[in-house]
Amino acid sequence: MLVLVLGWLPIVDIASVTFLWHFIPYYVLTFWAFEEINRGYGRVLQTEQFNMTRFWALMVSTLGWFRGRITFSVTPKNVSSHHGDHHYIIPQYSILAANAIAIPFGIWGLSGYGALPTSALVANILWSFVNIGLAALVVAMTLLRRHRRNEYRFPVPLVVRIDDPSGPSELAIAEDVSLSGFRIYSRLAQEMVLHDKISGRLLIPDGEISFSAEVIGENEGEMGKVRTVGCRLIWPDDAARDRLGLFLYGSNLQWRVLGLSDRVHTPLESLQLWLMGHGVHANAVRRWIPVFYQRLDVSGDQQWVGLISGNTSGPRTFLTYDALGSEADVQMLMQGKYRQQSLRIRADFSERVGNSVAPVYVYQAAERAAG
């Protein structure tokens, strides 16, 4: 940035494109080696974003050597609309603005009085764009962050029975679940408005949890074309809240079912997948449908509740709290957005996800002809 504004080069003999031929390969190979050596755990972009986030805090911390006794203070631990985030990212705003101004200033200096050689100008403009990008990522991550509740939101799907004053209870899906709220979508969600009060039961592996909630948000298109509503939980007692917390925090369901991982493909692994035609990113399940189901390969007409993925192509994933064996013939009634739909599947056992409450069983579902 200073080179663009002042026209002063730290290396004087840089008047040819020789510098670019060293500058660009050096950084490309450095970042590539970083990713490969760290075997997918390096994440150079996130690392540099973190460095951009903390640089000012590290600079300010050095002032502790020159300051006197620092008083102890307790910072707020809850998320509140009264505590904005803008003042925390003023340094990143400054980096973004200064580099954005320096680029046209450097171009003007080259055209006006030849302050910089062309190769040096190009290299410094590229580096300024890197700084702008990192600062913009930090600002966007802070201002548009997804988790605005006091508790972490678990992206696990849970079946909910919502009490319907005009009829029997209805199944719905709860996602982004935390101890303070969740997001639901169902037929009843199409009719809910802000500040509506609802009640029902959350279905977890060891039983049901009664709850009351207030609608505090609406979203018309986050789940494709399905309208969703955000709800704030109103717990009748601490015991019910603790039961949900035990299930959420005592399980790795979100990792196992949604295919989450803290490892990414290295550049060479991504290239190999691309050359083999497998694609780089796996298709994550984005929508779940609650179902009533019964087994056709055992006697009796008992019904259970489960979840099946809403993808229309490829094998579906079927979640249940009951073990069905290695293979099962299942007839289910899917509770769709506007209507119910019957489906018969062959459920092949995939894995058992254990937690501190009770296990969840994951099956791969292959559709069968009704009969």
Rank of each mutant, 00 (worst) to 15 (best):
H87T: 11
P117F: 03
W235L: 12
S356Y: 06
D348R: 11
P267H: 04
V215C: 15
C231L: 15
E36Q: 15
P267G: 08
A284P: 02
A284W: 01
A135V: 10
N311G: 09
S81C: 01
A369Y: 11
Y152W: 03
L202N: 10
A239C: 07
D348W: 01
L324C: 02
V305D: 08
E367S: 13
A328S: 15
G279V: 05
V226W: 08
E351P: 00
H83W: 05
P290H: 05
V177H: 13
G106E: 05
V330S: 14
D176E: 15
S212W: 05
L6C: 10
L203M: 13
A328I: 00
L144Q: 09
M334T: 10
V177F: 05
R43F: 10
W56I: 04
R232T: 07
V5M: 14
L343I: 08
D196K: 06
V193D: 12
S119W: 01
I107K: 03
R69S: 11
D163Q: 11
D238L: 09
H87Y: 07
L144S: 12
V17A: 11
A365N: 04
I11S: 12
T53R: 14
F349I: 01
A123M: 14
A366I: 04
G84K: 04
N311F: 05
M223T: 14
S186G: 11
